[in-house]
Amino acid sequence: MAPSAGTPQLATRPGAGWRWLILALGIAAASASALEPGTHTIELEHEGRQRQALVHVPDGAGEPPWPVVLNFHGGGGHAANQQDYSRLHELGAREGFVTVYPDGTGGILGRLHTWNAGDCCGYAARENVDDVGFTAALIDRLIDILPADPARIYATGLSNGAMMTYRLAESLGDRLAAVAPVAGIVAPTTTNSNPVPILHLHSRDDPRALYDGGLGPPFPLTRTRVHHAPVTASLTAWAERNGCRPARSATDEERTWHGPDTEHRAVRLTYADCPAGATVQLWRLTGAGHVWPGAAPALTRILGPATEVIDANAEIWAFFRDRRRTTDQATD
């Protein structure tokens, strides 16, 4: 069952003498209405659309407010699909963070949803769905009902969900502490918004979100094709936007994994001389497909080989864990 709407708005601004009382009452109300440990479906209306997300609150989340990771599904997926595929909430249960799987729009029977990441993808882009506004409203709701830590809101996603994550980094940079897109990228369109730490994960052998850019293959059972931005040039643009030096530093780490048919490799690269709090890193894989590293094989004829060369969940949370949104990121 969906929780009730957020706290009511006061009609008039309170005087200074009452602010402490209203703050105390607000804290008490938030604690009383906080979601219990477990899995919940929350709903909210945005721009006339009924939207929803799956929320996992772990046992032993620690003292509130809690860190929250938003995990956006790929194009043609849906919230439960990303939950079952990535299984990030299982790590959240062990590490004490809340995992949220938002649902896109379009499709049929609650499936085949997409995100409006600008030029991509599908229904959401064609109809210019306000997914940025929806995400901002979702963050507000989460802060009201969990309670969530406003300084520790993170975003990740796969494919079209990764593209959506980049759009949020640009449009909601004052609300996100860090992002970690997987197998999907868009270049920044502005240079003057808030810097956001970035960990990007992508395979050079991705058969769908092409690492070197270009027109990808048609979506299954359609003639729809998407033009993909090149990873190196796009990530360099994000690093420059964050104030990093254009050239990357030497390789930080290398790993190998012997898959069923071939050897997979992963190289972690870090952009040099980024300002404090604006790190940009890349896990560049070879041998893997259009996949969430560490996840079980799925649709391998379409997506390519799964891989265990790195565990995306572990790498993403290690990148997020100690990062907080700083005053340099905020606009207020």
Rank of each mutant, 00 (worst) to 15 (best):
A79Y: 00
H113S: 11
L112P: 00
H78R: 10
G92T: 09
G76M: 06
F97H: 05
G76Y: 03
D103W: 00
R94G: 08
L91F: 04
V100Y: 00
G106Q: 04
Y85Q: 08
L109K: 07
N81F: 14
A79D: 09
D84M: 15
R87V: 11
F97L: 13
H78I: 01
E95C: 07
G92S: 11
A117I: 06
Y101N: 02
V98I: 15
R94E: 15
E95T: 07
E95G: 02
P102V: 13
N81L: 14
T114V: 11
L91E: 00
I108V: 12
D84L: 14
P102F: 04
Y101D: 01
F97E: 02
G77K: 03
T105L: 09
G106L: 08
G92W: 02
Y85R: 11
P102Q: 09
G77D: 05
Q82F: 13
L91W: 00
H89E: 09
G104K: 01
T114G: 15
F97R: 01
L91M: 11
E95V: 07
N116Y: 04
G106P: 06
S86T: 14
R94W: 02
A80D: 07
R87K: 10
L91Y: 01
W115S: 08
D84I: 06
G110V: 12
R94K: 13
G76F: 07
D84G: 11
E95Y: 05
H113L: 15
Y101R: 03
N116L: 11
Q82C: 09
A79R: 02
E90G: 02
L91P: 00
A117P: 00
G92P: 03
W115F: 13
W115L: 11
H78S: 07
H113N: 14
A79I: 01
L91T: 03
G110L: 12
L88I: 15
V100C: 10
G107A: 13
L91H: 02
G104E: 05
R111D: 14
G104F: 04
H89W: 06
W115D: 05
Q83G: 08
H89T: 02
P102I: 13
Y101P: 00
A117K: 00
Q83K: 12
A93Y: 00
T99N: 03
G77S: 14
V98H: 03
H78G: 02
G96F: 05
N116C: 15
L91V: 12
L88P: 00
D84N: 12
S86I: 05
F97T: 08
